[in-house]
């Protein structure tokens, strides 16, 4: 497992566009949005969170777009299958590395921008935790979309996995409301941790089944 995590970290760190691209897109959207509409800071503060959520959705999709494609094209997936007879560990370590190297920095950027747009300084940790957990859930879902479509293009990945992101967005919306009104946050975050743990255990199994179908 550690071997896979090391290998995946190394591979991802070498693919500059895969990890830097999503971070830059996140920053660009968050900066460009307030510039593109002429509204007061007061109005902007009210719905800036929605922009963060949409940017999060977009960047996590972009980040996971080619998650398995390169490995599939160059034969690494087949090689891994021959060694391990399964993709569970590979998928688990890939998602872990992507969340650590891309998801958490994206969450940090999102939390920074929310802090600059009306969220109280004391809520920084809450927002960061919320966005990190959301990224964990979204990365799992989009990895599934990527595993289904593999080398058939991003459109198919979106069509297959975006509908599944709906419950995550709903949870996020509820959590944002609880941060803004200051109650019920602990319950939602506990629920998200629970869903995150279940999803992190089950999704690699499903993704693994989808990848095996491609190799067969």
């Amino acid at each position: 497992m550690l071997r896979l995590v090391k290998a995946e970290s190394f591979k991802l760190s070498k693919k500059l566009k895969s990890w830097l691209g999503p971070l830059l897109i996140m920053v660009l959207v968050l900066i460009a949005f307030p510039l593109s509409i002429d509204i007061s800071q007061f109005d902007l503060d009210k719905f800036y969170f929605s922009i963060i959520i949409v940017s999060l959705l977009m960047t996590s999709f972009v980040a996971t777009e080619g998650m398995f494609e390169e490995d599939f094209e160059d034969g690494s997936l087949e090689q891994e299958f021959l060694i391990e007879k399964d993709f569970y560990k590979l998928v688990l370590s890939k998602i872990f590395v992507y969340v650590c190297l891309i998801g958490i920095p994206i969450a940090f950027i999102g939390a920074l921008f929310s802090f600059a747009n009306g969220v109280a300084i004391g809520s920084f940790a809450k927002v960061f935790l919320l966005l990190s957990l959301s990224n964990l859930l979204l990365f799992n879902l989009f990895a599934f979309g990527n595993a289904l479509s593999i080398n058939k293009g991003a459109m198919l990945g979106v069509l297959s996995s975006l509908p599944l992101a709906l419950p995550v967005i709903i949870l996020l919306g509820t959590a944002v409301r609880s941060i803004q009104f200051g109650d019920g946050f602990a319950a939602i975050i506990t629920l998200m941790i629970g869903v995150g743990l279940v999803m992190s255990a089950i999704m690699p199994l499903i993704i693994s089944a989808a990848l095996k179908t491609h190799i067969d």
Binding site: L148, S149, L156, S160, P163, L164, T213
Partner: peptide, 27 residues
């Protein structure tokens, strides 16, 4: 639409059937 597109994008129909079934169950 996603289910139909996913199935239509693979020339190997057995593979398409399995992937489509996985997506349907998750959805």
């Amino acid at each position: 639409l996603g289910i139909l597109t996913l199935h239509g994008s693979f020339s190997n129909l057995e593979k398409a059937d399995r992937l489509m079934s996985i997506l349907v169950v998750i959805g």
